[in-house]
């Protein structure tokens, strides 16, 4: 699905504070599975995730999406790919305040020029799926953390992406909500979506819903383990 070959990433390259956050990573993300990047703080999880999600470019190395090398593509095409193939869930949810839940959800659909009615229809289906239909027109700042999280999931799914990317998605949730969130991810993976998340929360890493765990330390991959499950 997603393959990285010898990925290296430097911040402030060529300056006195040059810092190599990733030092040669090779990995392949399996499709329709839940993969977790784990590791201590500063080990490069977020950095690796931004490269997997086409938010950032590696300094060296190649990124292949479904066999196609995308690391050399210009910004515009990268955005296009990001919009089509990736959905993002952020630690702080990153919803736009002042907009209603439904307006937040359809935002990623704007640049595609999809008719509004169609976007709304899709968003409503997603909300219903997340048991949030009654909060459709609530301003996002009035929603609880768990509700915001689910709105963020809906937003990530509005363009029907194959890959879902989440950075520390449970950091702001309590155990019950985290468990609910993981159950949702499970469902999505079983429906065929590829899920990639970062976490140092044992609850997530050791969860039964996770298929594969990548362990990072100091910008290097030290362990890859398939943890789960007899195939469905």
């Amino acid at each position: 699905m997603l393959e990285l070959a010898n990925i290296r990433k430097a911040f402030n390259q060529g300056r006195h504070n040059e810092y190599w956050a990733l030092k040669g990573i090779d990995l392949a993300i399996p499709p329709a599975r839940v993969s977790v990047l784990k590791g201590p703080s500063g080990s490069g999880k977020t950095t690796l995730l931004t490269i997997l999600g086409c938010l950032a470019r590696p300094t060296e190395g190649r990124v292949r999406l479904k066999g196609e090398d995308i690391s050399g593509l210009p910004e515009r095409f990268l955005t296009e790919i990001r919009r089509r193939s990736f959905g993002f869930i952020f630690q702080q949810f990153n919803l736009v305040r002042g907009l209603s839940a439904i307006d937040n959800i359809i935002l990623p659909g704007y640049p595609t020029g999809t008719p509004r009615a169609q976007l709304l229809q899709r968003a409503e289906a997603l909300l219903a799926d997340m048991q949030l239909a009654h909060r459709r027109d609530a301003k996002v700042e009035w929603l609880s953390g768990g509700e915001q999280q689910r709105v963020a999931i809906c937003r990530a799914l509005i363009n029907d992406p194959e890959i879902l990317v989440a950075d520390e998605p449970t950091a702001n949730l309590d155990s019950r909500l985290s468990a609910e969130f993981l159950a949702i991810l499970r469902r999505l993976a079983e429906a065929g979506r590829t899920v990639i998340l970062t976490s140092h929360d044992p609850l997530v890493v050791e969860s039964a819903v996770v298929d594969r765990v990548y362990s990072l330390r100091d910008g290097q991959l030290i362990d890859v383990r398939d943890v789960r499950r007899a195939a469905p």
Partner: peptide, 19 residues
Amino acid sequence: AEEKREIGILKAIGWETGD
């Protein structure tokens, strides 16, 4: 700061600079 944050979000969820 609020607007800057919004723009960051929009870009992350797939808006192009031009959008």
